[in-house]
Design a protein around this nucleic acid. Structure first.
Lengths: 338, 338
DNA sequence: TTGTACGCGTTATCAA
DNA sequence: TTGATAACGCGTACAA
């Protein structure tokens, strides 16, 4: 059986109240008594029960995280960075994967609500969905949205996708590309919307004609994006450059390109989103729109801690992180015959 | 404020005991009353408090997982698969990263103990360390070790690394390689030990002379393994083939190879451990010793659930999963001048 | 079949 | 400065 505070008190010859005061470092306790209690604690190997503490104090010191898929390396990096910060503040993380499925997202939120987490870091598969919004509100606790743009009271940490995307387009246009394909997710979420916006801006400022057929924004999923890349490459007037507007799309892009026997950058230029070992070590190395997921995790965690600590900032804060374009050898001028 | 069972009972005009019995589906309760209580539940949106339930029932329905680093894709895949099984059984996962640091491992175990998890899936940075072993024993709950070989009472799920490694060596020897370099982790843990064993067996059965200088088993870390690969390639009589004996070593191997300007498989053959997008999409695609991490996660989770459910098997069960050698274009005969 | 009351391990209030 | 005691929300033995 577990050793309780009662046994500690008994062994130290004091009341449970006094023992508790020693644990929690209260001032009004005699030095001699404190000593006795501490000895009893280490002698018995006592550790306070988190459950009982939570019950009494009303706070579980648990944080929920819901991401699309923990096996996506940048998301894992985000989680790890957030965990470092939260662990240091004596919070424990409950991590789960929504797979961008509405019903799963709702189920996971319900589970975390039952667990009475003190805060939540999450994405959402549809910013405009009233039921999802209501569910977040109903939880009635601090929420930090990851790369989502939604009504208060949730805070948000986001990337300036449009800026990076616009740079990417301009940089491709600068070497002669006039038809650039973009594959990204459903525009019901910010990162896809912002990337499309950046793409448009980039085209405009480069004097490119905007062909809607070149923008495929249906889903962030790997399988679906493979289809989209293939579709773009199969167009009668195919793009000479491709941009993967999703953090887990690069493998699909490379597969689509290779299945058509195209070479990079000879036949086609390619730019990915989010850096990765794959992008760096591909032959040739792939250009990417990049940002620091680790810093995102740290800041997101801190934002949540502030909010839990009852900071007095208006709700719905948005922190936007910069993106940068890293040009590698996957980009070059288009073929002459285009 | 949170809605409690008391309010439900009051609204339904029954006692808390009756309300509780309805929640838990007890038999002896009149249909009409059950109906009234259920209406009150949905009207008030009541959800039982997990904390209070845990306190009362003595079980938190939480499982701890400690892995080296969640950003390693195969480990993330393992965690996700385990989570699918455990989530379905209404368990919640607490995931943390030890980074293979002894003190962190101990600290994380202590934290999970305080949280009173019902079970634990973990690796350990040193199987022989008596303090780590004692710490696991002291937790006094079901533990499933991931790819570790340690004394009972922990169960283990492991891979047949030696089999795969031996095949890899023989397959390289078959095309003419006589000096094959191996980089793996410290032999204080099973996977490194087993790989070295498989390497030796492979050399023996292929009639290769065993040169200890070709075996580098210091650490699984990426940084360290880069150093080891570089060292091997810098030998006066360097190996003509390299085997990466760690799940996160492939990037380091590729970097070391490229920094010396060597081409694969022309100058050097390469085989990795654990499949990945990087291995599949590299140019050329990299051969790997592979196994299913997802199945590992599912079986590991099930093993733990069985144990928690009080199954009557002897402690210290070991389940060994097969490994297979996937040959890709990263392997070929050695250069003539060797 | 239902209600009452206790206890799970803490912390906080109040009285001594 | 310390001790006794009441919560926190729930499940259940026991009594009715």
């Amino acid at each position: 059986m577990r050793v309780t505070i009662r046994e500690v008190a008994q062994r130290a010859g004091v009341s449970v109240g006094t023992a508790s005061r020693v644990m929690n470092g209260h001032a009004n306790v005699a030095a001699a008594i404190r000593e006795r209690v501490q000895q009893a604690v280490s002698a018995l190997g006592y550790m306070p029960s988190f459950m009982a503490q939570s019950m009494r104090r009303g706070g579980t010191r648990m944080i929920g995280i819901i991401v699309r898929d923990i096996t996506i390396p940048v998301l894992a990096g985000f989680v790890r960075a957030a965990q470092d910060v939260l662990q240091a503040a004596d919070y424990t993380l409950l991590i789960s994967c929504s797979e961008d499925i509405r019903s799963r997202e709702l189920a996971l939120m319900a589970q975390l609500a039952r667990r009475q987490v003190d805060g939540l870091i999450m994405t959402t598969c549809d910013e405009a969905d009233p039921e999802l919004l209501a569910a977040r509100k109903a939880m009635n606790l601090p929420v930090v949205l990851l790369d989502r743009e939604a009504p208060a009271p949730s805070d948000s940490i986001m990337m300036a996708h449009a800026v990076g995307m616009s740079r990417a387009v301009r940089s491709l246009a600068a070497v002669g590309h006039r038809r650039i394909g973009l594959v990204t997710g459903d525009t019901s979420v910010y990162p896809a919307r912002d990337r499309v916006r950046g793409y448009r801006e980039g085209c405009e400022s480069s004097g490119l004609v905007l062909d809607p057929a070149l923008i495929r924004s249906r889903s962030f999923s790997e399988d679906q994006s493979f289809v989209e890349f293939s579709t773009l490459l199969g167009l009668r007037d195919p793009p000479t450059a491709l941009i993967a507007g999703g953090i887990s799309m690069l493998p699909a892009a490379l597969r689509a390109v290779r299945s058509r026997g195209l070479s990079i950058p000879g036949d086609l230029s390619l730019i990915g989103s989010a850096d990765s070992e794959l992008a760096m070590l591909s032959t040739p190395p792939i250009s990417v729109i990049r940002w620091s997921y680790a810093e995102l995790g740290r800041v997101g965690a801190q934002l949540l801690l502030d909010r839990i600590g009852g900071i007095d900032a208006e709700a719905g804060r948005r922190i936007v992180f910069p993106t940068e374009l890293i040009m590698r050898e996957s980009c070059g001028p288009p073929r002459h015959d285009h």
